[in-house]
Simulated scan of single mutants.
Amino acid sequence: MSAIPPDPPSSGRAGSTSPCPDNGPAVTRTEFDALFDRLRTWGRWTPADRGAWNRVTPDHVRQAAALVRTGTVVPMALPWNTVPGPDNGNPALHHMTDLGDVEPPEPTCHKDFIAADYHGKGISHLDALSHIAYRGQLYDGRDARECVDSKGAWFGAVDALGPLVTRGVLIDMPVVLGRDWLEPGTAVHAEDVLAAEQALGVTIGESDAVLLRSGHFRRRRELGAWNPDDAGAGFHVDAMPLLAERGIALLGGDGDSDVRPSPVEGVSSPVHALAITAMGVPLLDNLDLEALSAACAAVGRYTFMTVVAPLNVPGGTGSPVNPVAVL
């Protein structure tokens, strides 16, 4: 029944509690639509609703396993967050259904119930390909109204994805920039990703899981909570062609990958639309990457084996998840 740790008083170590967006340049809807069409991978894979996870072969899994040297296992999920706040408008539920107070027979039993409206900012989760439609279409050009109804998703559901084991790459921007965190609203551009590769000694490659650390949860713990829908560090849309060219299989971070406010007029979550709907790349949102950052710094490398095992929910648009990195 734990939640994100309580907000401490402001430490003033690395910035104010007022977000200071720096998310330009602005992108017109016409420019964005042209980019969306250019990055589409529709019709490329079978089965289509696994999208870019089709890139991951047994060879990629073996190469990821070869990165395990110290045996350090780092979980990346937030605690189950039952406490309402500016970044948790729909708190998760956790209550007891059996307290072991009915006897005989032995042994007595304790049971609990959990539930969550997880597509928000308070739960670490995976977005499946049915989660985002753009211009009325899901990934692969499927009509969203025909594929998703009150019973769930008939295309692009999370159960079509299954587990993923592949190489993970941590783009640790605060380490690259010598800061404690990026201020909410700060955009990470293509040139920033290239600079991070050089600074961290990594090269993003085919089938990789790319994780962006902005220091979101370090900032939250030191300065307090804010509404990430209003301002959050993340990728600018101009980073997406680079990630598409590298052939990634998964994108995620300690935010929801999108810089907010959106730099695209009329599109609230442009990176979601480009990654999920155009490229077929599922997203991991709201990861706590602080322990992974420390573990990577300790061993002097920012690549590792990543294991993601979403719940097997037929028709689900995603899943709460606890991904792990193994170094």
Rank of each mutant, 00 (worst) to 15 (best):
H131Q: 14
V165M: 12
D159P: 03
H110W: 13
V165I: 14
V188E: 01
Q198G: 04
L194T: 15
G168N: 09
V102R: 12
E183G: 08
G141L: 04
L126V: 11
H189V: 11
V210L: 06
L200N: 04
R135C: 11
L182V: 12
E222I: 05
A116C: 06
D159M: 02
L223Y: 11
V176D: 00
K111G: 14
V193L: 15
W181Q: 00
G185V: 07
H110G: 08
L200Y: 02
V169P: 07
L212A: 11
L126N: 01
P163A: 13
A199Y: 00
G120Q: 14
T203G: 03
D159C: 11
G224M: 05
T186Q: 09
M173R: 13
K111V: 06
L161V: 12
E106C: 08
R167V: 15
G224C: 04
P184I: 10
K111F: 05
K121H: 10
L161P: 08
L161G: 13
L177D: 13
K121D: 14
I204P: 07
F155A: 11
M173Q: 07
Q198F: 00
I114L: 08
G201F: 11
V188P: 01
L177M: 12
R219T: 04
I171L: 15
D117I: 02
G122Q: 00
F217E: 06
P104D: 12
D140Y: 00
A209H: 05
Y134Q: 02
R167G: 08
G168H: 10
L223V: 14
L177V: 03
V102W: 07
L138V: 04
A199S: 13
V193I: 15
A160E: 11
R179K: 13
D143P: 02
A187Q: 04
G201R: 10
P105K: 09
R213A: 14
G178S: 07
H216T: 14
V210E: 06
A209R: 04
S130D: 09
